[in-house]
């Protein structure tokens, strides 16, 4: 029973304060990507891909915020797996966008 509980705790985040931090971080990422969206030169030839990738960053951030809100409100805990997957996805998009910008 104890072993099950510890596994469960390892895979989930329970505290609301932690959820608030995650949401704040995601909103910050979304705000930065919006800033990048406005900064990209719209007539540049390679700017469309950068614009698209940062738009995707925004969408994924909003989706994750929505997930955190739903999971905390309904289950009282957040599973780590979707958060990890979403974070890696955002990281990949940001790196790809920076590569295109350079």
């Amino acid at each position: 029973m104890n072993a099950e509980k510890s596994v469960s705790d390892r895979n989930t985040i329970v505290t609301e304060r932690m959820a608030l931090r995650i949401v704040s971080l995601l909103l910050l990422v979304a705000a930065i990507s919006v800033f990048v969206l406005w900064s990209v030169n719209p007539v540049g030839s390679g700017s469309e891909s950068t614009f698209a990738l940062y738009l995707a960053v925004d969408l994924v951030s909003v989706g994750m915020v929505s997930y955190v809100q739903r999971a905390v409100a309904r289950e009282g805990r957040i599973s780590r797996a979707p958060l990890a997957a979403g974070s890696f996805f955002i990281l990949f998009l940001v790196v790809a966008g920076l590569y295109l910008l350079s």
Binding site: A52, L53, A56, V60, V62, M64, R70
Partner: peptide, 22 residues
């Protein structure tokens, strides 16, 4: 509940389409 779930699905769908279009 359901609305937030749909937002998650729509965000995933939108980002997938955007990446394919890139």
């Amino acid at each position: 509940d359901v609305s937030f779930y749909l937002v998650e699905l729509a965000a995933l769908f939108g980002s997938a389409v955007i990446i394919i279009s890139v």
